[in-house]
């Protein structure tokens, strides 16, 4: 009984925060403006504009996830050996997250605009101003900056859990530094890497704020299309339909990753 009573707030939370909205989305996504059943909102993902936005989103999200990984993994490996200021270093990585993410993205605008800080310095030094903002590069920059902590934390947790004796054993058996990193540390931290990838890839795939703010309205991701359908387009049905497609997409990638994760764990067990 006690347990059930304790679970009541969460039951309400799940009903109000997950199930009802999900049901509403399914309703909108699977009906047309008149309320009759249709699959056209789902199939609309195949239209050239939507498909292109989806592919752009996939590409930018994949690149940012990769960059996040390439930044986070070496840090985690290095931090494993740091003894004293480790907590402080992790804290410093997380510190920007104390600020609102819109503000942080706006700060990048201020830095990257043609009349912004970086270009002012460049032109003061006598060089030609660069086109920094409103490019795919700027959007990737924003994604990496905003989502890096989500990659760093799980990888760092996984790496720091690997017992020192494990790597020492590898060294004793004659493994080189590189071999230890790639053949021992990397496979053992796969669970952390997997959750890091999910936590970066999924928000990066669906973002519309970053692409709006740093893409100058020229970079159109699937998230932007969905947002536009709900706001300007006034076509909630299509917006909901495309959101369902995105959810399926994310679900599939998570199942894929979970399977990969499990396979690796089994391999390690053997």
């Amino acid at each position: 009984m006690n347990k059930k009573a304790l679970s009541a707030p969460y039951v309400i939370w799940i009903i109000g925060g997950t199930l009802i909205p999900l049901a509403l989305m399914l309703y909108y996504g699977l009906t047309d403006g008149e309320g009759s059943f249709t699959l056209s909102n789902i199939l609309a993902i195949g239209e050239p504009g939507h498909l292109k936005a989806l592919l752009t989103a996939l590409l930018l999200a994949a690149v940012s996830t990769l960059i996040c990984f390439l930044l986070a993994f070496p840090i985690a490996v290095l931090l494993r050996r740091v003894k004293r200021a480790k907590g402080l270093i992790i804290f410093l990585f997380l510190l920007p997250m104390w600020m609102n993410f819109l503000l942080r993205t706006m700060a990048w605008q201020v830095l990257l605009e043609k009349g912004g800080v970086i270009n002012s310095i460049i032109s003061w030094l006598g060089f030609e101003k660069l086109r920094l903002i409103n490019t795919p590069g700027a959007v990737i920059m924003g994604m990496v900056y905003d989502f890096l902590p989500f990659m760093l934390l799980p990888i760092n947790n996984a790496v720091s859990k690997i017992a020192l004796s494990t790597t020492e054993a590898a060294y004793d058996l004659g493994a080189s530094e590189m071999q230890v990193v790639f053949k021992v540390v990397l496979p053992l931290s796969v669970p952390g890497i997997v959750s890091g990838i999910t936590m970066v890839f999924v928000p990066a795939l669906t973002t519309f704020v970053i692409s709006n703010m740093l893409g100058g309205g020229k970079i159109y991701l699937i998230g932007n299309i969905i947002e536009q359908e709900f706001t300007v387009g006034d076509n909630w049905n299509l917006g909901a339909g495309l959101s369902i497609v995105m959810m399926v997409f994310i679900l599939i990638s998570m199942l894929f990753i979970a399977k990969f994760d499990k396979d690796v764990e089994e391999d390690l067990a053997i």
Binding site: E113, K114, G216, K218
Partner: peptide, 22 residues
Amino acid sequence: QKELVYKYATDAIRDLLLNESA
């Protein structure tokens, strides 16, 4: 025209004109 355009925006345009971004 897209290639020529610095940015598509609404509210931001006035600030970017003032700081001579475009």
